[in-house]
């Protein structure tokens, strides 16, 4: 591979695969992640993907900086095609409007649409998970239709329940845990974005996944509550 490798202290490097937010750059990130996982380079500890880079954590007692650079430069990456990179589609059930989506009416009004049209547009698209960050399990997703873009609330709410699905500008996202926030809430999912089972954590989404929102009723919401 011939991507720039930038030092991040003495235990990590950043591999810069591009400089933009795009599906193509995300494919490069995912391809690099897979190539690194397959190469199983001794001493590599943790890979942290982002929009256009992968932060590679390593143990300098097992592999020196120079050895790491050599192994990374020798790495052969099979670039994924647009089809194979986006095979995994994660369906996220969402109960839109009502008490779960108190801002659905505002989003509709702001865009000159009916609430039903907002739901149809939001659940009609598929969204690419570029990266996770900000909070455990929070996915930065792209691909929202501009017709439902809405600015953030003028004053943020003190507490937004976990699972809330919101819109902020041209972005949509899911709150993985209860937190303060200024997103326009249009619905809520009963699916947990992350769960701690015993010692290990489980996460609904990873970088490179595609998300599809599936409208459900309040009754279905209550039935599914607690599932992961």
């Amino acid at each position: 591979m011939n991507y720039p490798i930038l030092p991040c202290g003495d235990c990590a490097v950043t591999v810069q695969v591009g400089y933009e937010i795009s599906e193509e750059t995300n494919r490069k990130v995912v391809s690099l992640m897979r190539a690194l996982a397959e190469a199983a380079i001794p001493g590599l500890r943790e890979l942290v993907p982002s929009y256009s880079a992968v932060c590679v954590h390593y143990d300098p007692e097992q592999i020196s900086y120079e050895q790491l650079l050599e192994r990374l430069n020798d790495l052969e990456i099979k670039e994924l095609s647009s089809e194979s990179a986006s095979q995994k589609i994660v369906e996220i059930p969402v109960c839109y409007g009502g008490e779960y989506g108190p801002d659905l009416a505002f989003v509709a009004e702001h865009n000159g649409l009916s609430p039903e049209e907002v739901v149809a547009i939001h659940s009609g698209g598929t969204y690419l998970v570029y990266m996770l960050g900000f909070l455990p399990g929070f996915a930065y997703m792209g691909g929202m239709d501009e017709r439902i873009a809405t600015p953030r609330l003028a004053s943020p709410r003190a507490r937004i329940p976990a699972g809330s699905v919101g819109i902020a500008g041209g972005q949509t996202g899911i709150y993985p845990l209860a937190s303060p926030g200024g997103w326009q809430l249009i619905g809520r999912t009963p699916v947990k974005m992350f769960a701690m089972e015993g010692e290990t954590g489980r996460f609904a989404l990873s970088a490179g996944d595609r998300v599809k929102f599936v409208p459900i009723s309040e009754e279905q919401y209550r039935e599914m509550e607690g599932e992961v």
């Binding site: 932060c55 954590h57 996770l132 455990p136 929070f138």
Partner: peptide
């Protein structure tokens, strides 16, 4: 807490 940074866990 190592190995969960890819999922946004500090």
């Amino acid at each position: 807490r190592m190995d969960y940074q890819a999922f946004g866990v500090p």
